[in-house]
């Protein structure tokens, strides 16, 4: 079977497609709060991190789970990363909207990790994810805690003003 081909078009494909439509509609409908390049970079960040996990923990040597119908790389895997991408924007969007700072950040990350676990539970239910080799959703919770903390670090690093403005070279 060729690369990217879908084995069987059923509930997992529909979940990913409908999920992508819903998240991108949300992305377009929310009032603009962040610069466009920040939005783009947050979406690319949220596209890349699950892809990194899927191709490192989900596949390869560890092989803890399959995405969609098989361990093969199919076009719906790519669509599922597009489905994840707006979540990076939503995460920072509500962080700014709620002005979560100080201790509130702990609860904000915990809350979002629970939301992420809920979405993942739905993905397991609709067979977008199939766990293998002893993997459970509890491991994902820890991964979400780490990833969302890193997303906040990434966002603050990205938006921090440069320390020094040279006339020619940028020294950040």
């Amino acid at each position: 079977m060729s690369i990217f081909a879908i084995d069987k078009f059923d509930q997992n494909e529909w979940f990913v497609i409908i999920g992508a439509v819903v998240t991108y509609t949300g992305l377009l409908l929310l009032p603009k709060r962040l610069p466009t390049s920040t939005t783009l970079l947050l979406c690319i960040w949220a596209f890349t991190t699950p892809k990194f996990y899927d191709f490192t923990l989900g596949g390869g040597l560890f092989d803890y789970y399959d995405v969609n119908d098989s361990p093969r790389y199919c076009i719906m895997d790519l669509v599922s990363y597009f489905f994840f991408a707006p979540f990076g924007y939503f995460f920072i969007y509500f962080y700014e909207w709620l002005r979560a700072r100080g201790r509130a950040v702990v609860f904000y990350i915990l809350g979002w990790s629970l939301v992420a676990v809920g979405v993942e539970w739905l993905m397991v239910y609709f067979h977008v994810l199939t766990y293998k080799n002893g993997y459970t959703i509890a491991y994902s919770f820890v991964i979400y805690l780490f990833t969302q903390s890193m997303t906040l670090v990434f966002y603050h690093w990205l938006t921090r003003p440069p320390k020094q403005a040279s006339s020619d070279l940028r020294t950040e």
Binding site: L41, I44, T48, L158, E172
Partner: peptide, 22 residues
């Protein structure tokens, strides 16, 4: 010192990472 901004570095790094993983 570098000619690329932080955003440009991140953008290039992440997109090439995406392509290379695939």
């Amino acid at each position: 010192p570098k000619k690329l901004s932080r955003r440009e570095c991140v953008f290039l790094f992440l997109v090439i990472l995406d392509i290379n993983i695939s």
